[in-house]
Amino acid sequence: MKILLIEDEPELRRSIKQYLHGEGYVVESAADFIKGSEKINDYQYDCILVDITLPSGSGLDIIKQLKENNSKAGIIIISAKNSADDKIIGLDLGADDYLAKPFNLAELNSRIKALIRRRSFDGNKSIIVNEIVIIPEERSVKINESTVNLTAKEYDLLLFFITNKNRVISKNTIAEHLWGDDSDQMDSHDFIYVHLRNLRKKLAEKGCKDYVQTIYGIGYNFKVNG
């Protein structure tokens, strides 16, 4: 999987690259519009992460250029301008997703994976982790061939864990993933605890191993060996 990151802030570029490397992606980056524009002309990517405000041009023009080239790459806008207009314009131009800064790397990772899943035509549309099988199209989960009845939040939580498996994910990151903008308005850590407790119970009932490790002080790690 090849990803192009077009972002002018070097520190952010470095961190995103590092995190995505860890997920097994090949990540290339461009610091401005001109370099980004050159790269998309010369190479093929599976996914392009593009900032809107770039030195020497707009990320929106990168999207236009991609569409003119009939690129098959998935496009995720990462912008500091969380404006509905930019979002609508970007999505209208053919971007697949929009992520406002400041975002969590785990969230970015989950958006990239969801995008690649949606775009993959190889028929293999389920995610398999040992005894757990997730079929995202149906939003269903099976343990050892037997379906687990999860609530929407429990399903989202499990998918987020599996997407970011073997990573320490903070409770804040989980809260932002599950509740989006509303997460800072409530005692979300307690809710996570409640949902996680129910999820663990339901998985254990079907004979699933407890993969979720509590990392005291910060959050959880969905630990899968190998």
């Binding site: 802030e9 590092q18 406002a100 400041p102 790397l105 990573r167 320490v168 903070s170 990151t173 990392i215």
Partner: peptide, 20 residues
């Protein structure tokens, strides 16, 4: 406020990496 979003994203990203 807009300009502050990028540095915040940098801090957030580095924190995500640090806790690993």
């Amino acid at each position: 406020s807009h300009e502050m979003q990028t540095p915040l994203a940098v801090v957030k990203a580095n924190l995500s990496l640090l806790i690993q």
